[in-house]
Amino acid sequence: MMNKQRNSNDILTKPKVCYFCLNNVQIIDYKDTQLLRKFLSSYSKIVPRKRSAVCSAHQRELANAIKRARVMALLPFTTK
């Protein structure tokens, strides 16, 4: 039952592999706004792991990087 559901969702969901593990990124640079923007929602909120499939260790680093970027006005705190 669970398996069936998961298969039907496969079409909609991205492969469940952390972007940073996949690309072998150890340190997430807060200055790389192009990359960080991929992990912001349309309201500039940090995208939850559930949606972005980032592993917990990298999500923590990512959140820190985004927050640093926000302080430096590289990324917005909110949009609208």
Partner: peptide
Amino acid sequence: IVVKKTPKTAGKGLLKVTRVSA
């Protein structure tokens, strides 16, 4: 903002060995 920088930008490739086969 002042941030600790672990690998110096000049000396790359120190931490890049661990996870290769993702």
